[in-house]
Simulated assay, not measured.
Amino acid sequence: MKEWLHVHRGQAPLVISIPHAGTIIPPEIAEHLVDHDLAIHDADWFIPQLYGFAQALGATIVRTDISRTAIDVNRDPSGQSLYPGQVTTGLCPTETFDGLPLYRPGRAPRQAEIARRRISYFAPYHDALEGEIDRLRLIHPRILLYDAHSIRSHVERLFDGELPALNLGTNSGASAGVEAVAIAEKHMAGSGFSHVTNGRFKGGWITRHYGRPAEGVHALQMEIAQRAYMDEPAGLDMPTWKPERAAALMAVLEAMLTDLIDWTKE
């Protein structure tokens, strides 16, 4: 196992994928960047802590410490956009969410370097994720893959205004059965948090690629506005985890995932 790749194996019919919480940038990539703090600014901060209850539920957890700036394991490896016609970041991003350049002039990765990163960082993550899905499918007739994300509440370049706190993505209904979606929506509706299903974020490549309800793999993406559990950073300052605020959100997420586990076992 790669030292930057973490797999906790559980026996429940739930896999939690955490692809964007990493802040490690390998030295051979970091030397070409404009600034380290800028390069990790768009991380999904504190997501492992936010789902700290998941091991007790029996969940399997797959996460990477590698920053999405090095390679985004939630993007189509072919390089095709997941949101045609909308601004988004690519497989090996060259700009931040705000459109600031990540690389010094002439240092952005070319095709050979992108291919190397796919082999070194993208492939091991997905080998692990697919392996855990296959393992649990031998135990359970159906499982849930839950892709866990967060983002700043205001990113003018990506969406207008303030993002709802809870953003459920199902690839417009294709990645999960209607019963699973209804359970998630019930908990969002009763949470007191603003929420939407298949709004700006319909699910990334992980949700779209692995979500095969007819084959017993139901995939949901949850994109959380970071104000729901932390103080969002001003400029490039480090963010601040807010325990009391996070506790209220964690209670909602734990209840949701508990009911989803029960549903998979029905």
Results as ranks from 00 to 15, higher is better:
S120A: 14
M222E: 12
I47N: 11
G90P: 01
A251D: 12
P101C: 04
H6S: 13
A112K: 12
I143T: 02
T96S: 11
L168M: 07
D160W: 06
A70T: 14
T60F: 07
S120V: 14
F193V: 07
H41A: 15
H154F: 13
D72N: 10
I16A: 07
T264N: 13
A189E: 06
R9W: 05
A128Q: 04
P213D: 04
P93F: 00
E185R: 10
G235H: 07
F53G: 00
A189D: 08
R212E: 00
G52Q: 11
Y103H: 03
R142C: 08
D127T: 15
W205P: 05
L253C: 02
Y229V: 04
I18D: 10
I47R: 00
P124S: 05
P243H: 13
G177S: 11
T60W: 07
P213E: 07
A255P: 13
D237Y: 11
M188R: 00
L38K: 13
A234G: 15
S120P: 01
A43Q: 09
E95D: 09
R75C: 08
L253G: 02
T89Y: 02
P243M: 10
A21V: 12
G131C: 09
L260V: 09
G216L: 12
A247V: 09
G22A: 04
I224W: 01
P13I: 05
H20G: 14
I40S: 12
I206Y: 05
E95I: 10
A21N: 01
L158Q: 04
Y103I: 00
I71M: 03
